[in-house]
């Protein structure tokens, strides 16, 4: 119709070339999509796995259905309770029902102030780093400006000191490919 502009189909081969990698790219992205958090009050993963007896009481206790059984994640963590923030982030309840019901003390109150995971922004996937105005992670962060904040160019940054790793930012991110990931 109107306003057709120069077609650049002679470069199509380059795109085909790139598309060869698409599957691989997709896979690696999916891995990130599956990045998970350990429940509140847990120690490092190794210790958590040792103590947890898979009674799943914590999963039943979670009022926000944020805890779930790890499935097809990796051999170490599969079948243990985890949080998938891309599906449901942790509400960080003040009374931590998950910790209260944990008999084997895989989850303990004294560790409830530990962050659930370390969060990092994937700048290549983040709209704010790619000419789009997007602030969903910052506006939805339950902690406020201190854990994730915008710089003077509206690009988000994480302040790891203040972040509790609840994963709300991951849950809320509207990017097509996850622009926030968990680093272990």
């Amino acid at each position: 119709m109107q306003n057709k502009v120069e077609n650049i189909s002679r470069h199509k081969f380059i795109v085909n070339f790139v598309q060869l990698f698409r599957d691989e790219l997709g896979k690696s992205v999916n891995e990130e999509y599956k990045s998970y958090l350990l429940p509140p009050g847990s120690a490092a993963q190794e210790e958590y796995i040792q103590k947890c007896n898979k009674c799943y009481e914590c999963i039943s206790a979670c009022p926000h259905e944020a805890l779930r059984v790890a499935h097809e994640m990796n051999e170490t963590i599969d079948s243990y309770p985890i949080i998938l923030p891309s599906i449901t982030a942790c509400n960080m309840c003040s009374d931590f029902p998950c910790i209260n019901v944990c008999e084997p003390e895989a989850l303990i109150s004294s560790q409830s102030d530990q962050p659930l995971g370390k969060i990092e922004i994937v700048e290549n996937n983040c709209y704010a780093y790619n000419d789009h105005y997007c602030t969903s992670c910052v506006t939805n962060c339950p902690i406020g400006d201190s854990a994730i904040y915008l710089d003077s160019n509206n690009k988000p940054h994480i302040n790891i000191e203040n972040c509790n790793g609840c994963g709300v930012c991951i849950n809320t991110c509207p990017a097509e490919q996850p622009a926030i990931k968990i680093i272990n």
């Binding site: 790139v18 990698f21 698409r22 690696s28 290549n124 996937n125 790619n130 097509e176």
Partner: peptide
């Protein structure tokens, strides 16, 4: 982007 395993969707 491909080299670090992610893509610009747009």
């Amino acid at each position: 982007a491909a080299s670090i395993g992610v893509q610009f969707p747009s």
